[in-house]
């Protein structure tokens, strides 16, 4: 079965797709990029199709545009017009629309790079900046003004770290996990504190901070697999950034807490199953074209 699938995809991408493209070009007199530009599709759908077309292109220059995070958009548009033989005067709309698409693709790639840089930065107790952030986290989630008793101690488990030293809990998510926990409480304090208090439920409780770090993992994996395209490509502004990704995180984390409660799990040992179910639900939502990755509290 797998062999057949490989054989079929090879045939499609090496032979059938180029032939189809050539045929369409003969009939319409336009290359694929032009046809997508002129098609009447949603913004997100158009950008996604442009991205796919660039990625599958045999021209290295075009291919690179799909994954380049610091693309000079204006220069690239000019270059591609030359490569593709598109006369700007004959197709003025192309230049505008294509530039917009490239900008959005580059913005998505930029978010990936920035998130990965933070993720790969290991939390270090020797770094003052990291330590300051940790203290900030404590104060954000202790809105009653409780002072941090000491750098290491059992009090960290109150906000859901595993043991006495939170430094070991960021693991593969590095600084990104810390930043996102901070962002949640800084931008949406009421909801963040709600989730924290829900995590202390005697029966349906969970460890707030490490579940938060786990949600960072869910988000960053979906981001890297380009699963947030439908949403990010549909922004009004052409240049969404890292904070927009952090907002998705808040939505996903808050949504998980609600889902967890609704599932009424027997114990924390059901976390793996509930997480998997929730991820499936998120994936289904993401496969739709106009997915809004914002909770109600984020839409004001």
């Amino acid at each position: 079965m797998e062999l057949f699938y490989n054989w079929w995809t090879n045939l499609y991408f090496l032979l059938l797709r180029p032939m189809l493209k050539l045929l369409f070009k003969w009939v319409t007199g336009q290359c694929e990029l032009l046809r997508i530009t002129y098609s009447n599709s949603h913004q997100a759908d158009r950008v996604k199709r442009i991205e796919t077309s660039l990625r599958l292109s045999r021209n290295i220059e075009l291919q690179k545009c799909a994954d380049n995070s610091d693309l000079d958009v204006t220069v690239s548009v000019e270059r591609i017009q030359v490569v593709k033989n598109i006369t700007p005067t004959a197709h003025p709309q192309f230049q505008v629309s294509f530039k917009d698409s490239l900008q959005r693709i580059a913005a998505y790639n930029q978010i990936i790079v920035q998130a990965e840089n933070l993720r790969k930065t290991k939390f270090s107790s020797d770094n003052e900046d990291h330590e300051e952030k940790l203290t900030k986290l404590w104060h954000l989630y202790n809105a009653d003004g409780a002072v941090l008793p000491s750098r290491v101690g059992h009090h960290w488990t109150e906000i859901g770290f595993q043991g006495d030293d939170p430094a070991t809990d960021f693991r593969g998510m590095g600084l990104l996990g810390l930043e996102q926990l901070i962002f949640f409480a800084e931008i949406y304090p009421q909801q963040a504190l709600n989730v924290l208090s829900q995590s202390r439920h005697p029966q349906f409780g969970f460890s707030f901070a490490i579940v938060g770090i786990n949600m960072t993992e869910m988000c960053v994996t979906l981001l890297n697999k380009r699963q947030f395209r439908s949403y990010i490509y549909s922004f009004e502004k052409p240049d969404p950034g890292l904070t927009d990704f952090h907002r998705i995180y808040c939505h996903i984390f808050h949504g998980f807490a609600q889902y967890w409660l609704a599932e009424r799990p027997n114990s924390i040992m059901e976390f793996g199953r509930v997480r998997e179910d929730y991820l499936q639900k998120v994936r289904t939502l993401l496969s739709a074209d106009n997915t809004l990755l914002l909770s109600e509290f984020q839409q004001s």
Partner: peptide
């Protein structure tokens, strides 16, 4: 891949 590991809540 071991680059994305997070603390285990529950079990794997």
């Amino acid at each position: 891949d071991i680059t994305h590991i997070t603390p285990t809540q529950g079990f794997n």
